[in-house]
Computed example of a mutant assay.
Amino acid sequence: MSRIDDTRDFIPVRIAILTVSDTRSAADDRSGNTLADLIETAGHSIAARTILPDERAQIADQLRAWCANDAIDVVISTGGTGLTGRDVTVEAHRDVYEKEIDAFGTVFTHVSMAKIGTSAVQSRATGGVANGTYLFALPGSPGACKDAWDEILVKQLDYRHRPCNFVEIMPRLDEHLRRK
Protein backbone atom coordinates (compact mmCIF):
# COMPACT_ATOMS: atom_id res chain seq x y z
CA MET A 1 0.00 0.00 0.00
CA SER A 2 1.14 3.57 -0.56
CA ARG A 3 2.98 5.33 2.24
CA ILE A 4 5.53 8.03 3.03
CA ASP A 5 9.07 6.74 3.56
CA ASP A 6 10.47 8.96 6.32
CA THR A 7 14.02 7.77 5.58
CA ARG A 8 13.94 9.79 2.35
CA ASP A 9 14.32 13.56 2.21
CA PHE A 10 11.52 15.67 0.75
CA ILE A 11 12.50 17.22 -2.60
CA PRO A 12 10.50 20.34 -3.49
CA VAL A 13 9.50 20.73 -7.13
CA ARG A 14 8.91 23.95 -9.08
CA ILE A 15 5.37 24.18 -10.38
CA ALA A 16 3.80 26.59 -12.89
CA ILE A 17 0.06 27.26 -12.71
CA LEU A 18 -1.95 28.12 -15.82
CA THR A 19 -5.56 29.19 -15.43
CA VAL A 20 -7.51 28.89 -18.67
CA SER A 21 -10.56 31.14 -18.73
CA ASP A 22 -12.21 33.78 -20.88
CA THR A 23 -13.62 35.48 -17.78
CA ARG A 24 -11.22 35.05 -14.83
CA SER A 25 -8.71 37.62 -13.64
CA ALA A 26 -6.07 37.46 -10.91
CA ALA A 27 -8.64 38.95 -8.52
CA ASP A 28 -11.13 36.08 -8.91
CA ASP A 29 -8.98 33.09 -9.89
CA ARG A 30 -10.29 30.77 -7.17
CA SER A 31 -8.98 27.57 -8.77
CA GLY A 32 -5.52 29.01 -9.37
CA ASN A 33 -5.45 30.30 -5.80
CA THR A 34 -6.53 26.90 -4.49
CA LEU A 35 -3.70 25.22 -6.38
CA ALA A 36 -1.16 27.83 -5.25
CA ASP A 37 -2.14 27.35 -1.60
CA LEU A 38 -2.01 23.55 -1.83
CA ILE A 39 1.35 23.58 -3.66
CA GLU A 40 3.00 25.91 -1.17
CA THR A 41 1.51 24.12 1.86
CA ALA A 42 3.03 20.87 0.55
CA GLY A 43 6.48 22.53 0.44
CA HIS A 44 6.79 23.05 -3.31
CA SER A 45 7.31 26.40 -5.03
CA ILE A 46 5.31 28.38 -7.58
CA ALA A 47 7.70 28.87 -10.49
CA ALA A 48 5.27 30.83 -12.68
CA ARG A 49 1.61 31.67 -12.90
CA THR A 50 -0.60 33.18 -15.58
CA ILE A 51 -4.15 33.33 -16.94
CA LEU A 52 -4.90 32.77 -20.62
CA PRO A 53 -8.14 32.72 -22.64
CA ASP A 54 -9.55 29.50 -24.07
CA GLU A 55 -7.39 29.67 -27.20
CA ARG A 56 -5.68 26.42 -28.17
CA ALA A 57 -2.60 27.94 -29.81
CA GLN A 58 -1.95 30.34 -26.91
CA ILE A 59 -2.30 27.57 -24.36
CA ALA A 60 0.02 25.24 -26.29
CA ASP A 61 2.59 28.02 -26.78
CA GLN A 62 2.61 28.74 -23.03
CA LEU A 63 2.97 25.05 -22.20
CA ARG A 64 5.88 24.72 -24.64
CA ALA A 65 7.59 27.81 -23.20
CA TRP A 66 7.30 26.47 -19.68
CA CYS A 67 8.53 23.03 -20.75
CA ALA A 68 11.60 24.70 -22.24
CA ASN A 69 12.28 26.53 -18.96
CA ASP A 70 14.75 24.64 -16.75
CA ALA A 71 13.30 26.38 -13.69
CA ILE A 72 9.95 24.56 -14.10
CA ASP A 73 9.44 20.86 -13.29
CA VAL A 74 5.65 20.61 -13.45
CA VAL A 75 2.84 22.56 -15.11
CA ILE A 76 -0.70 22.36 -13.78
CA SER A 77 -3.49 24.00 -15.73
CA THR A 78 -7.02 24.54 -14.49
CA GLY A 79 -10.02 25.17 -16.71
CA GLY A 80 -11.06 24.30 -20.23
CA THR A 81 -11.34 20.53 -19.74
CA GLY A 82 -15.09 20.28 -20.27
CA LEU A 83 -17.19 19.52 -23.31
CA THR A 84 -18.21 22.92 -24.62
CA GLY A 85 -16.89 24.39 -27.84
CA ARG A 86 -14.54 26.78 -26.00
CA ASP A 87 -13.00 23.97 -23.89
CA VAL A 88 -9.70 23.39 -25.72
CA THR A 89 -7.19 22.89 -22.91
CA VAL A 90 -7.01 19.12 -23.34
CA GLU A 91 -6.36 19.49 -27.07
CA ALA A 92 -3.64 22.09 -26.37
CA HIS A 93 -1.99 19.77 -23.84
CA ARG A 94 -2.06 16.89 -26.30
CA ASP A 95 -0.48 19.13 -28.94
CA VAL A 96 2.51 19.39 -26.57
CA TYR A 97 2.74 15.93 -24.97
CA GLU A 98 5.50 13.54 -25.96
CA LYS A 99 3.83 10.90 -23.79
CA GLU A 100 0.39 10.91 -22.22
CA ILE A 101 -0.06 9.60 -18.68
CA ASP A 102 -3.25 7.71 -19.52
CA ALA A 103 -3.94 6.54 -15.99
CA PHE A 104 -4.01 10.11 -14.63
CA GLY A 105 -7.39 10.80 -16.24
CA THR A 106 -8.68 7.40 -15.16
CA VAL A 107 -7.63 7.88 -11.54
CA PHE A 108 -9.02 11.42 -11.55
CA THR A 109 -12.35 10.09 -12.81
CA HIS A 110 -12.37 7.49 -10.04
CA VAL A 111 -11.69 10.20 -7.43
CA SER A 112 -14.38 12.43 -8.95
CA MET A 113 -16.96 9.64 -8.99
CA ALA A 114 -16.70 9.41 -5.21
CA LYS A 115 -17.38 13.16 -4.94
CA ILE A 116 -19.79 14.05 -7.76
CA GLY A 117 -21.09 10.74 -9.05
CA THR A 118 -21.69 10.29 -12.75
CA SER A 119 -21.09 13.99 -13.42
CA ALA A 120 -17.42 12.94 -13.44
CA VAL A 121 -17.88 11.80 -17.05
CA GLN A 122 -17.97 15.46 -18.11
CA SER A 123 -14.34 16.04 -17.14
CA ARG A 124 -11.46 15.33 -19.48
CA ALA A 125 -8.61 15.76 -16.99
CA THR A 126 -5.34 14.62 -18.51
CA GLY A 127 -1.64 14.33 -17.78
CA GLY A 128 1.48 13.96 -19.85
CA VAL A 129 5.18 14.62 -20.24
CA ALA A 130 7.04 16.93 -22.62
CA ASN A 131 10.69 17.94 -22.65
CA GLY A 132 11.25 16.43 -19.21
CA THR A 133 8.33 18.36 -17.68
CA TYR A 134 5.12 16.94 -16.24
CA LEU A 135 1.89 18.55 -17.44
CA PHE A 136 -1.54 18.13 -15.87
CA ALA A 137 -4.86 19.61 -17.04
CA LEU A 138 -7.50 19.87 -14.31
CA PRO A 139 -11.07 21.13 -14.39
CA GLY A 140 -11.73 24.76 -13.52
CA SER A 141 -13.47 24.26 -10.20
CA PRO A 142 -11.62 24.72 -6.90
CA GLY A 143 -13.13 21.44 -5.66
CA ALA A 144 -11.78 19.48 -8.62
CA CYS A 145 -8.34 21.07 -8.19
CA LYS A 146 -8.34 20.18 -4.50
CA ASP A 147 -9.44 16.60 -5.24
CA ALA A 148 -6.74 16.11 -7.89
CA TRP A 149 -4.09 17.54 -5.58
CA ASP A 150 -5.14 15.77 -2.38
CA GLU A 151 -5.82 12.38 -3.92
CA ILE A 152 -3.15 12.16 -6.66
CA LEU A 153 -0.63 14.94 -7.12
CA VAL A 154 0.45 15.60 -3.52
CA LYS A 155 1.49 11.94 -3.34
CA GLN A 156 3.02 11.55 -6.77
CA LEU A 157 4.98 14.81 -6.44
CA ASP A 158 6.48 13.70 -3.10
CA TYR A 159 9.83 11.93 -3.46
CA ARG A 160 9.15 10.09 -0.20
CA HIS A 161 5.96 8.44 -1.51
CA ARG A 162 6.21 4.68 -1.92
CA PRO A 163 6.10 2.40 -3.77
CA CYS A 164 6.88 4.94 -6.51
CA ASN A 165 6.36 8.58 -7.48
CA PHE A 166 6.85 11.04 -10.33
CA VAL A 167 9.77 12.84 -8.68
CA GLU A 168 12.13 9.86 -8.58
CA ILE A 169 11.89 9.35 -12.34
CA MET A 170 12.07 13.07 -13.18
CA PRO A 171 15.79 12.94 -14.07
CA ARG A 172 15.03 10.27 -16.68
CA LEU A 173 12.05 11.88 -18.41
CA ASP A 174 14.19 13.39 -21.17
CA GLU A 175 16.84 10.66 -21.41
CA HIS A 176 15.82 9.96 -25.02
CA LEU A 177 17.00 13.47 -25.88
CA ARG A 178 20.47 12.76 -24.48
CA ARG A 179 21.06 9.46 -26.30
CA LYS A 180 23.57 9.31 -29.12
Rank of each mutant, 00 (worst) to 15 (best):
N69V: 00
D70G: 11
D73L: 14
V74P: 06
V74M: 10
V74F: 02
I76R: 04
I76G: 00
I76W: 03
S77G: 13
S77C: 04
G80E: 02
T81F: 03
T81A: 08
G82Q: 12
G82N: 07
L83E: 08
L83C: 10
T84H: 09
T84R: 14
G85S: 14
R86N: 14
R86M: 10
R86I: 10
R86F: 14
R86Y: 14
D87F: 00
D87N: 07
V88C: 13
T89I: 04
V90L: 06
E91S: 14
A92T: 13
H93W: 13
R94S: 05
D95S: 15
D95F: 12
V96M: 03
V96K: 02
V96R: 00
V96Q: 00
Y97Q: 04
Y97S: 04
E98N: 02
K99I: 10
K99N: 11
E100W: 03
E100K: 12
I101D: 04
I101Y: 01
D102C: 11
D102I: 14
D102W: 10
A103H: 10
A103K: 08
F104Q: 09
G105L: 04
T106K: 09
V107Y: 12
V107L: 15
V107N: 13
V107H: 09
F108V: 07
F108W: 01
T109G: 10
H110N: 12
S112R: 06
A114N: 14
A114H: 13
A114F: 14
K115I: 13
G117F: 06
G117P: 07
G117Q: 01
T118V: 13
S119L: 12
V121Q: 03
V121T: 11
V121R: 06
V121L: 15
S123R: 01
R124V: 08
R124E: 10
R124G: 07
A125K: 02
A125W: 04
T126D: 08
G128S: 09
G128E: 09
G128Y: 01
V129G: 02
V129F: 00
N131Q: 05
G132W: 00
G132H: 04
Y134E: 07
Y134C: 06
L135S: 03
L135K: 05
F136Q: 03
A137I: 05
L138F: 07
L138H: 08
S141E: 12
P142V: 12
G143E: 08
A144Y: 05
C145G: 09
A148E: 11
A148F: 05
A148N: 11
D150P: 09
E151D: 15
L153H: 11
L153S: 00
L153F: 02
L153M: 13
V154S: 09
V154Y: 02
K155R: 13
Q156M: 07
Q156S: 02
L157Y: 13
L157K: 01
L157I: 01
L157R: 06
D158M: 11
D158I: 11
H161M: 11
H161F: 14
H161N: 10
H161E: 15
R162P: 12
R162C: 06
P163A: 14
